[in-house]
């Protein structure tokens, strides 16, 4: 088809969708819609993982981000009952400053990306590293220390969340 393989077509469509949904997150007025667009963005990214033959990562991405974290986000936003009427009106000065700041960030990002070397396309399809078994082996042998450190980080966050959540500390 027009000289592209199916994988390339899928990659193009998925990239277009993820960028579009990511923009919709920012542009939609209603916070609940923003969250729902963010969920769709996560689904598109999971699709990219699937293209890279990383099924485990794709499913875990959906279970953790779309299935748990974003549900909690949605939860809070629904309970706070935010909508267009309650959104604070911004003056033109804030808009200009936000525009300049955002533009600067874009400038920095483009500049830093321009400096990096172009990496060759990873040969997907043949790579089996994304499968559960191989990923587990690598995580528990080669990257055991960073993996355990990350779990300590999560534990610290967990304890912190519980401490903040408590009404009074005995």
């Amino acid at each position: 088809m027009l000289g592209y393989t199916i994988t390339q077509w899928l990659f193009g469509i998925l990239s277009f969708l993820s960028i579009m949904f990511a923009l919709m997150v920012v542009f939609s007025r209603n916070p609940v819609n923003s969250v729902l667009y963010l969920v769709l963005t996560f689904f598109c990214i999971a699709g990219h993982y699937l293209l890279l033959n990383a099924q485990f990562l794709a499913v875990v991405h959906i279970v953790v981000y779309a299935g748990a974290i974003m549900v909690l986000f949605l939860f809070i936003i629904m309970l706070m009952n935010l909508n267009e009427d309650t959104e604070p009106q911004r003056t033109w000065i804030t808009k200009i400053i936000a525009g300049i700041a955002g533009g600067m960030l874009l400038f920095v990002l483009v500049g830093s990306l321009k400096g990096t070397e172009q990496l060759g396309l990873a040969s997907y399809g043949s790579s089996q590293i994304g499968l559960v078994k191989n990923l587990g082996k690598v995580l528990f042998s080669e990257f055991l220390f960073p993996f355990e450190i990350a779990s300590v980080l999560l534990l610290a966050a967990l304890v912190g969340a519980i401490m903040i959540g408590k009404k009074e500390i005995k």
Binding site: F56, V59, V60, I62, V63, A66, G67, A68, V71
Partner: peptide
């Protein structure tokens, strides 16, 4: 995991 993914999206 697929089962869990689908169930968690069902929410």
């Amino acid at each position: 995991l697929y089962l869990f993914g689908v169930v968690s999206v069902g929410v």
